[in-house]
Structure formats: structure tokens, C-alpha cells
Design a protein around this nucleic acid. Structure first.
Length: 208
DNA sequence: TCATTAACACGGG
DNA sequence: CCCGTGTTAATGA
């Protein structure tokens, strides 16, 4: 676990901090499509992402979901950070998009590290900033982009996350993540296929 | 005009 | 058969 840590965070964290993380952190392998955190849950440890991707979703009163943004390696969850400090409930849902490796750090440590390690403070601050920017990006998408562009953007993100041109998602899943109906997704995907931007297959889509 | 809802047909696993 | 997909018709914002 320590080698992985040094590999990913060595340039960022002090040696002592890396050792502390290795000492108290719990390494976890999580398969794809696992719910890591749900609405209303109290958070008792924060995840440090080593490998894979997690999607962060918001949910409305009817239980319909909307994808906000993805977390990738080197990222952490901003909601966890604020939840841990104030002991409030989670406002978001986190689901693994791919098979994921992460380190869970109990909350009591992360607070003391804030005073102890400059690099940790910087990391937490940067994380807040990054997540805020991604949130703004998500708002821009919903407010200003048409559905066709949002679909392409989502496919591009998913492709980048998996490192593959193939996106293994059904039209239904895409519709739920973008909070729209499957009919529209099918129609838009068909249009994109006619424009030679993607190729459609059963249960997966290839970007061209 | 464009999204949504409901309904139906087709085909693959 | 069930599910994913493609399409249409009616309705609404």
C-alpha cells in the first residue's frame, strides 16, 4: 500500500504524512457500481482515491438522480470533508463507476493533520476548489448546454475514465444520469451515429 | 420547437 | 421470456 501511496501522492505529501496515512488508512478494493455513500448517511472516514472512478450524484424528492461529476485517482470527496468537520449528513450519493481502489482514513486523523501538515491543508483546500469548479461545470451543462452536447460530454468523460473508446452503458442508464428519458437519449444517440461521431451496439457505444 | 410519456415491434441472449 | 433498442403519436412547456 505504501508504494502505491508514494507513487500517487509522493510528490505532494511529506514523508511523515505518507507514513501516517499508511499506518491508519484502510486499503479497499471496491467493484464497479457499488454505493459508497448515500443520502442522509453520516460519514466516519474519508476516501482517498488510488485507482478507478466514482460518480457523485444528487437526488430529488422523487428519487430521480442527476450526475454531478466524477472523482478520479488523486481526488477525494469534498462532501466528506465538510461532513467530517460538522458531523452533518451527506447531501450526495457516491457510486463507483469502475472497479476502484481507495484508502479510507478515519476522520479524527484528517482534522489533526490539518494543523500538522502544510501539504495536507493544501490538499484539502485544492480539493474544495476542484470540486467547486466541477460543480460550476455541471451547472453550466444543465443550464446552457442542449441535451445533445451533454450526452457527448458524458460519453467523452466516461471514455476518458475507462481509458477506452467503448462506453459500456445502456441508453436507460445514460438517461438516468442526465435526468431525462430514454426515448430522447435513443434519438440523440441515433443522430450522433448518423453524424459518424459514435457507433451504436447493444449495451455499449464506441466513440469515433 | 423540443422534451416527455405511453405504447408497440423487433431481436438477441 | 426479458431487456435493450428504435420509432411513433399525443401532449405539454
Amino acid at each position: 500500500m505504501e508504494e502505491l501511496l508514494i507513487d500517487l501522492y509522493g510528490g505532494q505529501f511529506e514523508r511523515e504524512l505518507l507514513q501516517e496515512i499508511a499506518a491508519v488508512g484502510v486499503f479497499k478494493n471496491v467493484p464497479a457500481d457499488t454505493v459508497l455513500m448515500d443520502f442522509g448517511q453520516y460519514v466516519k472516514s474519508m476516501p482517498l482515491l488510488l485507482k478507478g472512478a466514482i460518480k457523485i450524484m444528487r437526488e430529488d424528492q422523487d428519487g430521480d438522480e442527476l450526475l454531478l461529476y466524477f472523482l478520479e485517482k488523486g481526488d477525494t470527496c469534498a462532501m466528506t470533508l465538510s461532513c467530517c468537520m460538522g458531523f452533518t449528513k451527506s447531501e450526495i450519493k457516491a457510486v463507483t463507476e469502475t472497479d476502484t481502489q481507495l484508502i479510507m482514513i478515519p476522520v479524527q486523523h484528517m482534522e489533526s493533520w490539518l494543523g500538522k501538515y502544510k501539504s495536507w491543508r493544501g490538499f484539502v483546500m485544492d480539493s474544495y476548489h476542484d470540486r467547486l469548479m466541477e460543480m460550476l461545470d455541471a451547472i453550466d451543462s444543465i443550464a446552457f448546454m442542449n441535451l445533445e452536447d451533454r450526452v457527448m460530454k458524458l460519453l467523452a468523460e466516461k471514455s476518458q475514465i475507462t481509458g477506452s473508446k467503448d462506453v459500456r452503458n445502456t441508453h436507460k442508464e445514460i438517461a438516468q444520469e442526465l435526468h431525462t428519458s430514454r426515448v430522447v437519449i435513443s434519438r440523440i444517440l441515433k443522430k450522433l451515429e448518423n453524424e459518424k461521431r459514435i457507433a451504436l451496439h447493444r449495451s455499449h457505444i464506441t466513440l469515433l
